[in-house]
Amino acid sequence: MSNLWFLYLFFSALLIFIGIYCLLTMRNLIKLFIAVEIISKGVSLAIVATGAVKNSVLLAQSLAITYIVVEVSLVATALALIINIYKKNKSLDVRLLSKLKG
């Protein structure tokens, strides 16, 4: 069981790494939110796998479902923000946001 747990957490750490790398290096706002999605996939994989290995899969599922609902809400709000930023700046470049004043 420990080996199985190791396998899942190993891969979930890889997903989180891919997401963080993208967050740190990419400039496109939509790409950045794809990175947030990848990180959240890693986290939900870790939650469900830990529940499955520790015989608490029901609890882990309910936590994962809560997490997915929060994720959807976050993405919907963020994408609405991105569209508004695009309307204002005519670009999705994240570096242009540093010019904001207010």
Binding site: A76, Y86, L92
Partner: peptide, 18 residues
């Protein structure tokens, strides 16, 4: 949602990545 956003921002939205 992602595809919708991409469709709404496609015209001038391309960003040169490093």
């Amino acid at each position: 949602l992602f595809i919708l956003t991409i469709a709404l921002t496609k015209k001038e939205g391309e960003v040169e990545e490093a």
